[in-house]
Amino acid sequence: MTQWEKPVLTLKNFNKTFGNGCSFCKDKPENLKGGCCPKCRTIYACRDVSLCVYCGEVVGIVGESGSGKSTLMQALYFDSEPTDGEYYLDAYKNGERNIFADSRRQQKWVRNMLLGMVYQNPVMGLKMHFSAQSNIAEKMIAAGNRDVHSMVARGNDLLERVSIPPARRKDNPCNFSGGMQQRVQIAKALANEPPVLLLDEITTGLDLSVQADVLELIQKIQRANRNSILLVSHDLSVIRMLADRTVVMRNGQIIEEGLTDQILEDPQHPYTQQLVYSLL
């Protein structure tokens, strides 16, 4: 049967290495130890990662620490250059142009207009010594907005949606709690109404009730805007709650993918079994 729906985001054979490799490790994945070359210490953070996200779909990414999840997300947001791979967005040139091969300027445009990112570490996503309002305005300015009034109005609107009270909106995020910082990051990510959201461990380090708030917020947003979401979490209950499909990573590779309940109830790969059985 022909393709009955088109992915919003497609990543093909993405590779990212830190280091130049040597004759011992180049094209010899069997020589790597945990994704790292024992001779030259080159780290193969992502290897041949391919995935799709469809319209309105939440795809979960799970995997142990160091498995390459953040590396993947940062490449998708153009924070770092890929070593290799192809990246297509349906909303960009009809999904026909490999954005990794496009100019830096085009990549910036894609990043500002089509993507929203929430970093594992709020320090990476926010200017800690600028007000919450300015942080959001920054993203709108990057998208070409110059009208201060509309930006303030929209900023207020977004901060309202993520429940940052008016009295705190001119404060700097460095004085916010972890949950508030994450919510400001979320508001910022939504500033230009991007079709795709990249969410990296958005609930890590937050206490349980705050986690529930943040998850509820994400669900509300997803429902209202029908965003497509890539969601990294090591917390399987977060994945169970939000993800339609789940991808399991280990040592930079995707080792298993499936419907979320299948991954959790009938895991196939030894590592996925370990992950699921030890955490349930």
């Binding site: 499936g258 419907l259 309940d261 299948q262 109830e265 009938d266 196939q268």
Partner: peptide
């Protein structure tokens, strides 16, 4: 039932 629903493979 779970095989029909693809919870099990």
């Amino acid at each position: 039932l779970k095989s029909i629903y693809r919870t099990y493979l």
